[in-house]
Design a protein around this nucleic acid. Structure first.
Lengths: 164, 164
DNA sequence: GAGAGACTACTCGGATACAGTCTGTCCGAGTAAATCCGG
DNA sequence: CCGGATTTACTCGGACAGACTGTATCCGAGTAGTCTCTC
């Protein structure tokens, strides 16, 4: 059970978009070349972000993507769920209802009113995972990058994306 | 990104083993019929538990599985990791090192000493998930089952597994 | 009645098959900026 | 010099293929109880 590669790519692309001046569009091509990942496939991840309304796109030349809202209003969870889906990582198939000792009509014993104890624990864990992601905005990564990377490389990186 | 079905099955099987009298062996066949799950496939999950030394098996007739240690010493995390593997749900491929602005020899900038900020957050979330699972022993589910299920059905269920 | 051998029921592990998802590529349609061309 | 047509560069969406993983089945080898058969 492992998250897709696209999750990692989407997160890196979002931090790039967050680091650049507000409103600057960046093309899929540029993002793909920068990270050395297949352009057409990365495009799928960006489309997912677009559909989740985390980024917005413009067509035509000079087109591309930019964040749809402030970088501190976009969390890791937003990005992960956009790419990976919002479903929990555990799905209860209610196999407890297959207990041959339970009468056929005893659906009430296994109804939503008495959720499966095992599923409850798994859901709680899933929520803990999502909570951490929800508490971390994309902007926080920009800060650490700005602090950790030598200013020279940081400036060159930002310039790399700017036209002319 | 979703956990395997086998995880759910393994957890349910473990709670059954935990609920039965200490040391009682239960065959794969019985567990499979009880949960209405393919026997040969369930057997794979049980083998994984066996390999992780959470359960122990005996061959021959009256053979089967039983818990290898007390039910309050076996956590959800033990079972999940036995079936699903111990690896984190996010793997960092270090695509930040592909930044074309970084000189070829600047490996030190992206070394373990400065872990990728994005990966750090993902690992933190993964740890939060595992922490919840590690804090919940299998025995806790037995308690809630005993409390929620009418005693009649509970007794019949335990009897279902006992030879005689 | 006792002991040796055959039998049975189970686990274990490997081999195999099928479906679904992940990864990656290709192409056509639509769009907006830039360029070109004719008046 | 200006306005309309063409070109260009991008997004978007669908179709497709290959690899990998998850799901499921089957079978043979090994093992421990049980049964049978012989003395």
């Amino acid at each position: 059970m492992q998250l897709k590669n696209q999750v990692e790519w989407a997160l890196h692309c979002c931090t790039i978009l967050a680091a650049l001046p507000d409103g600057q569009y960046v093309s899929t091509k540029a993002l793909a070349e920068f990270h050395r990942v297949p352009k057409e496939y990365l495009s799928k991840a960006l489309q997912a972000l677009s559909q989740a309304e985390l980024v917005e796109s413009t067509l035509g030349p000079t087109g591309g993507y930019r964040l749809a809202r402030a970088a501190d209003k976009i969390t890791f969870l937003d990005v992960v769920e956009a790419v990976e889906g919002k479903g929990p990582n555990f799905v209860c198939t209610e196999i407890r209802a297959n207990n041959p000792c339970l009468p056929a009509g005893a659906k009430s014993l296994v109804s939503k009113a008495r959720p499966c104890g095992i599923a409850s624990v798994m859901y709680r864990a899933d929520r803990a995972w999502r909570d951490v992601l929800a508490q971390t905005p994309i902007s926080s990564i920009v800060s650490t990058l700005e602090r950790d990377l030598p200013p020279k490389f940081w400036r060159e990186t930002l310039d790399w994306f700017s036209p002319d």
